[in-house]
Design a protein around this nucleic acid. Structure first.
Length: 545
RNA sequence: GGCCCCGUCGUCUAGAGGCCUAGGACACGGCCCUUUCAAGGCCGCAACACGGGUUCGAAUCCCGUCGGGGUCACCA
């Protein structure tokens, strides 16, 4: 009988998948796939208040997008396993290994405060209740939790990632809650029961769980379960060293809010009013760097201070998807956060990672999440992929960016757009540069600074060139990028003008801005008629300025 | 604060006592290319946290200091 490695990913459905969670999922997935074992998915929804069906959907969607497929057809939901948990809890209680505890949250909070003031860690002490007291509490209907009676002794376990024995002294252990007053099991309990039930052999998780492990092994011992192999992954941090979370986004919004206040010379109260938010809330937030806005509040504030969805640093898998990153690139980058195949090897396909993955090459130092490098990886991958292959990725990108004018483009058009955007760093970058190609000619918005700098400056030199170019282009019969290029360059030569002096006015005329894909490919895509119409529109607009 | 974990360029890392004058990637700087933004090419800058040991020899082993992180929930 040979052992099969069985790993799992067990998120709680509280929202979209976070990159930290994705990294945990990836490592477990890689371990399973590398060894030909199984990777299972379980939903830890024992916190009724925070779990939602919507979040489950989002989680699965993110996992699918990444390609981290799971092997259990039937998902395990902890909320559906109450009977199993309760049976085991009853059994533990009847054996004296667990007991009801009646303290109220307020009482516990008070004790904690005392411990904190005394500068020691709070350790729960089981009160010695008489039978009479218990009867009294029960008849009062006082809510009770069930606590596991932790054996008071030292616990130790081996960690495969850290490569060492973790030891927790007897004075550090305490009786922990295994069933809440609402009747739901706690994480500590459900995780142990389910990992055993699902035959999990290896558990890779974030280092924030390191000390929890002793609770879990104590429970395993009490229940007669085998102990799985544990490995605790280093934490992913923000660039400023804080734990990766919402903070990076908040920081950016805060910065822009302060700029807004300074530039407009208005007050925090006016800012709050403009965003339809509570004044006190905004004032408090601005005054205290430690505070963070809720996601809904962030969304209201962003347009006011001039931020768009894509401007914030991404932290959720979904953010990266919406920003136009390729899933395999994200996976590659995430894998490198805490793991290395050794040597100079960095860029890997998913298949290569599966082949190369090994636990003893997982690192133990925390890693900061460096978006620049991810961007560089994505740029390379886009260049390597080729236009045809990127069409489905672009489709996917558009599916989560419903407001894009490229949404209606067919595959051939998308392929052309991608092809003319060589050098793009993200799908979004290509999409934004190419939007003008899909707008109605009348809907081109001429950017004031571009019009000023490229058309009006120096005695309307650009505008004059544009007028003459209209003539040249009108006379160009064969409307291909090559022919248009020849015509424009011919004109440049005869007029002794640098190409830039001519290309930029055309660019502004057709796109409204000074940035676009290479101009000749853009013009070919637009077609002669639309190009001329846009030039006419622009001529009229700029002349009136 | 107690307990636990960690510590190689700015960042991610390679490095398992001599192969290290410490390698790669990203970022950064310079130059080149160029119709914009990107992309691309070439060159360059840059680290073993500190202090003690052990050893003929230490980035690699041990101890201490310092620094960073995690955790102390009826959240997972």
């Amino acid at each position: 009988m040979s052992f099969q490695i069985v790993t799992r990913f067990a998120p709680s459905p509280t929202g979209y998948l976070h990159v930290g969670g994705a990294r945990t999922a990836l490592f477990n997935w890689l371990l399973a796939r590398h060894s030909g074992g199984q990777f299972l998915l379980r939903i830890e929804d024992t916190d009724l208040a925070r779990s939602s069906e919507q979040a489950v959907k989002q989680l699965l969607d993110d996992l699918r997008w990444l390609g981290l497929n799971w092997d259990n057809v039937e998902l395990v939901f902890q909320s559906k396993r109450l009977e199993a948990y309760n049976g085991i809890i009853e059994q533990l209680m009847s054996q004296g290994m667990a007991y009801k505890a009646y303290e109220t949250p307020e009482e516990l909070e008070g004790q904690r405060r005392i411990a904190e003031r005394a500068k020691r860690a709070y350790i729960y002490k089981r009160p010695k209740l008489t039978d009479e007291q218990i009867r009294k509490y029960e008849s009062e209907g006082r809510p009770a939790v069930v606590r596991f009676a932790m054996p008071v002794r030292e616990f130790r376990f081996h960690d495969v990632v850290l490569g060492k024995e973790i030891v927790l002294g007897a004075s550090q252990v305490q009786d922990f809650v295994i069933r809440k007053t609402d009747g739901m099991p706690t994480y500590h309990f459900a995780v142990v029961v389910d990992d055993a039930a699902m035959g999990i052999s290896h558990i890779l998780r974030g280092q924030e769980h390191l000390l929890n492990t002793v609770n879990h092994i104590a429970l395993q011992e009490a229940l007669g379960y085998a102990r799985p192999t544990y490995g605790h992954l280093p934490v992913i941090l923000n660039t400023d060293g804080s734990k990766m979370g919402k903070r990076d986004r908040d920081k950016k919004i805060r910065h822009r809010a302060n700029v807004w206040l300074k530039n407009t010379k208005r007050s925090a109260a006016e800012l709050a009013a403009a965003a339809a938010l509570e004044t006190g809330r905004i004032e408090g937030w601005l005054a205290d760097d430690g505070r963070q806005l809720e996601a809904a509040e962030q969304q209201k504030l962003m347009p006011v201070v001039g931020l768009e969805a894509g401007d914030l640093p991404e932290i959720l898998v979904h953010d990266f998807r919406a920003s136009g990153y390729l899933p395999d690139v994200l996976l590659n980058f995430l894998a490198l956060l805490g793991w290395s195949p050794g040597g100079d090897r960095e860029r890997m396909s998913v298949g290569e990672m599966v082949q190369l993955f090994s636990l003893d090459r997982v690192g133990q130092a925390n890693a900061k999440f460096n978006r620049d490098k991810l961007l560089a990886f994505n740029t390379e991958a886009c260049a390597a992929a080729g236009a045809t292959q990127l069409v489905p990725a672009m489709r996917d990108f558009l599916s989560v960016n419903a407001d894009s004018p490229l949404g209606s483009a067919d595959a051939a058009a998308l392929e052309k757009v991608i092809a003319m955007n060589v050098g793009m760093r993200t799908l979004r970058e290509a999409e934004q540069k190419s939007r003008f190609l899909f707008l109605a000619d009348e809907n081109i918005e001429y950017q004031a600074d571009a019009v000023e700098k490229i058309l009006l400056k120096n005695d309307k030199q650009g505008l004059n060139v544009l007028g003459r170019m209209r003539q040249v282009l009108d006379e160009t019969l064969d409307w291909t990028a090559a022919c248009v290029e020849a015509a424009v360059k011919g004109y440049c030569a005869s007029a002794s003008l640098a190409l830039g002096k001519v290309a930029q006015p055309i660019r502004v005329a057709v796109s409204g801005t000074s940035i676009s894909p290479p101009i000749f490919a853009s013009l070919e895509f637009l077609g002669k008629e639309r190009t001329l119409r846009r030039i006419d529109n622009c001529l009229r607009f700029a002349t009136s300025q």
